[in-house]
Design a protein around this nucleic acid. Structure first.
Lengths: 111, 111
DNA sequence: CAGTATCCATCAGGATACTG
DNA sequence: CAGTATCCTGATGGATACTG
């Protein structure tokens, strides 16, 4: 292996690093949607992810934002409005997501 | 989105299907090693994954085998000997892992 | 509308000891 | 050597109610 190894048992491989970043249950799908649709409001996003709760969605969005993958714009209007979009950095993940999408489409049955 | 959706809130997107398959903490790394090294015995694999326990390693290996990603050959010798290798089907995951590896290498600091 | 706050369930993952 | 068998823990995710 060529990735940075450490002896504290923390990071063993660059693949693991990537997995840690996008391994959240909804992160890949959120990024995928934002990349396709461009910009989405909170509730629009929520409707696209059947089953996600408020807590989890905002959590995942916050982490994605902290990692620089998505951009959050808040309009101080009434009613409130928040728009999410993917950043250029977030787009660097697209090759991975595309491969995952291709594979999942080819091999994922309806289970 | 184009992937199969269902109304039970089970599978929403083919990306999620993929993530479910390889999202285990060690699965990607195991596959990566097996693809690089060809064939590895149980303990050799263990040495390559600092921090993994017996239980978790055999669990992940079993799941990978059940999913058809890896091949397990057991020699009924004394002492016992078991060899793991990646299957052709497992190799279909390589484009994903390669992209993950590239991204992780480029953006993963040592944290 | 777009979130927190709270509380709870689940389970993947880990430590350790034992076994064929 | 290559595993199970137990037991345990913390992180992740979920339901629901409340809020600016």
């Amino acid at each position: 292996m060529d990735a940075p190894m450490d002896n504290d048992g923390k990071l063993k491989c660059s693949i693991e690093y990537t997995l840690k970043k996008i391994g959240g249950k909804w992160k890949t799908v959120i990024l995928w949607h934002l990349n396709v649709d461009g910009t989405l409001r909170y509730n629009a996003l929520r409707r696209l992810l059947p089953g996600v709760s408020h807590k989890v969605l905002s959590q995942q969005l916050k982490e994605l934002e902290e990692d620089g993958f998505i951009h959050r714009v808040q309009f101080n209007s009434i009613p409130p409005k928040v728009e999410y979009s993917i950043t250029d950095f977030g787009k660097t993940l697209m090759p991975i997501l595309e491969q995952m999408h291709v594979w999942g489409t080819e091999h994922g049955s309806l289970e």
